[in-house]
Design a protein around this nucleic acid. Sequence first.
DNA 1: TTGTAGGCGTTATCAC
DNA 2: GTGATAACGCCTACAA
Lengths: 348, 348
Amino acid sequence: MSSPKPPKKTHSVVPGQTVTLEQVAAHAGVSPSTVSRILNGTAVVSPAKKAAVEAAIQELGFRPNPVARGLAGGRTMSIGVVTQIISSPFYGEALLGIEEQLEQAGYVPLIVSGHWRDVDERKALQTLLARRVDGLIVFAGRLSAADLLQEAAGLPLVVMGRQVQGPQAFSFSFDNRKGARLATEHLLAQGHRRIAFVMGDPVHDDAADRYQGYLDALAAAGLAADPALLTQGDYTEGGGLLAITHLLARGQSFSAVFSCNDQMAIGAAHGLRRHGLRVPDDVSLVGFDDVVLARYAMPPLTTVRQSMLDMGHQAAKAVLDQLAGRPPQVQLPAPELVVRDSTRRLAR
Amino acid sequence: MSSPKPPKKTHSVVPGQTVTLEQVAAHAGVSPSTVSRILNGTAVVSPAKKAAVEAAIQELGFRPNPVARGLAGGRTMSIGVVTQIISSPFYGEALLGIEEQLEQAGYVPLIVSGHWRDVDERKALQTLLARRVDGLIVFAGRLSAADLLQEAAGLPLVVMGRQVQGPQAFSFSFDNRKGARLATEHLLAQGHRRIAFVMGDPVHDDAADRYQGYLDALAAAGLAADPALLTQGDYTEGGGLLAITHLLARGQSFSAVFSCNDQMAIGAAHGLRRHGLRVPDDVSLVGFDDVVLARYAMPPLTTVRQSMLDMGHQAAKAVLDQLAGRPPQVQLPAPELVVRDSTRRLAR
DNA sequence: TTGTAGGCGTTATCAC
DNA sequence: GTGATAACGCCTACAA
């Protein structure tokens, strides 16, 4: 057997190394506290020592240990993120936005899924708290606002898609009602009168708001909403397929469908097709969110643009703001209808 | 109306609390080390004390602090995961699988994106190492195997989609070559002879392997591959669209397209449609992966099933195995062709 | 089997 | 400004 080759020391920068702050201090001829102060900007130090320390850090390739920092200072430089289903393109885009934004500030997202289940969300929050995350970003789920606030236990909290009032809670939503109204008005303007609505779980504010926007548009046009045209799904393609199938089985007739999100819209398109109804020739279809697949659906889906990437950015910015003691601010884009090929004027 | 129900306090369990191991020890009348031993199964303790400690843990609602554990014991109970793009449905499904599996073992994934960029992957690994993750799961990226191994610095490492040899590295791939051969054979069996291939970046083993499978099938049928029918994309819908557009611009004629992944296949379908070519009437189309959108594409996409959820499970199991000192084992499903509606017999 | 003591790498609180 | 000196919450020899 050959002799084990010693790890080549590039200077002293070796991956997996364990250069400590103490070593840096020794190397620079100062005390550990001084190094710490320079690292955190906690106090003013003399330029000379500062330079020496910075040189030592460079030379030794020192990186502060977040774990130790977490224990000592209580800051882990990580933000807990509660999504519902990590594999969903909807959440995926938002997570990307969050990650991008946090990275710049040296934070890392700790992502845990709630699976749309009360207990799982609660467990997720507890896991995150146990891990001592510095802040929380939560996507609207099933947990009550009160429970959410209680579990968050005073940590900076940003909630997307639901209003939550609390001392350190900041919540914001896309203007779902307006967006849904836009979508419905578009269909109305094309002459559609019997517009089916595929709702999400009304427990969620966004689903309820979008339904409200649909009603708004109908009312403004002097139309009454036909409850028989209302159906519900679980935000997935399969759910949309099921919902539209039920509607058709009930023998309802309609010339357009407005779905609470793109994924269900795409499922609905399949359901319609199975019943010999073509989109948009026989039935116009509008989604919501404008996830990537909306553009590549066949036909490309008319939808309401809600950039989840942007929402993710905003959410991350908001926690970061709270962490920095700044009042969180978000710049939400106005709802915008993206007209593609899944809608057309009602042939009379 | 009834009075607001007070949050049921289960004993003294309050979210955000900070019950320490020391308090548990005091409560149970034993030393901290004993509690620690019980928690970790490090040594045998008397049943009596064990019971007392467990009762105390229950009553106080104690949860060990992973941060402190990480500092003291060197185990953070977190696994670093390097994906390329977190928002991609492909990675999303795998992440879901990883998360599910890790959760059962009390581990949490720390997900960082490499964005298909050498530098970002390296940085991702460094971030993960700095955070003292206990193990690493890496999706094939652009970083060389040597660099990968060096950055991983001896940590248990599981690599998916690329072969990496190393003392503590374990890598596995789906049988891409076989899968691609299956897909191509399917098209050949339907009479197609001019089959375009939309490749991914050949730097990646899976892309290269799938191309090889395509060549295998062609060769077995006594056909030569026409280089003019080869095009390349970046795994996204947009990339597939572009790739097929280039191919058509070059004036190539073909009756079928095999795409390296589903997303590019869907983009390709759009490109074909724009040129007045219908799928499958004019051109048959096969994808690879069988992500959710394949089923809901229009027409539903014939593809090679590769359950990323399962791959995620396997990867997580493999790191867990390594962590437990067991030799990692994975059970990979055999490639399977899922025939849907995007392919049809060549009309002659 | 069980307890004591020291240490993991930083930050924070004191004095100087 | 700067440096000792405690924590932070847990693990792990070592001793008993």
